[in-house]
């Protein structure tokens, strides 16, 4: 599970890095492109969801009820925060 989680986080962070970097270049040339920055930051803000999904999948696979229930609680609080304050 740890190796998969590490891979998921790296993919998200590298994507966010590339998107934001291209946003900086675009902004420097045109003075526009706020949306690109929002997409980059959005990727970072949803990274925990990808973590939760990976942990949930492995929790089910391992049959570890404690991990599954705790992760569902984290998902509930996180989604509440995301949807209430977006």
């Amino acid at each position: 599970m740890e190796k998969e989680l590490s891979k998921v986080l790296k993919i998200i962070l590298y994507s966010a890095f590339v998107v934001i970097l291209s946003g900086i270049v675009f902004f420097s040339l045109t003075h526009r492109g706020r949306l690109i920055f929002e997409v980059g930051i959005g990727l970072i803000l949803v990274a925990p969801l990808a973590e939760f999904a990976t942990i949930l999948i492995y929790g089910f696979k391992l049959g570890n009820r404690k991990i599954v229930l705790l992760t569902l609680w984290l998902v509930a609080v996180f989604l509440f925060s995301l949807l209430k304050f977006r």
């Binding site: 890095f17 706020r34 929002e38 980059g40 930051i41 970072i44 304050f85 977006r86």
Partner: peptide
């Protein structure tokens, strides 16, 4: 999770945050 209320209040500018990140 903690930053979401800041985003709603307009206190987390994505352009500034992106440059810092």
């Amino acid at each position: 999770t903690g930053v979401m209320p800041y985003v709603e209040r307009g206190e987390a500018d994505p352009v500034v945050a992106a440059s810092i990140v």
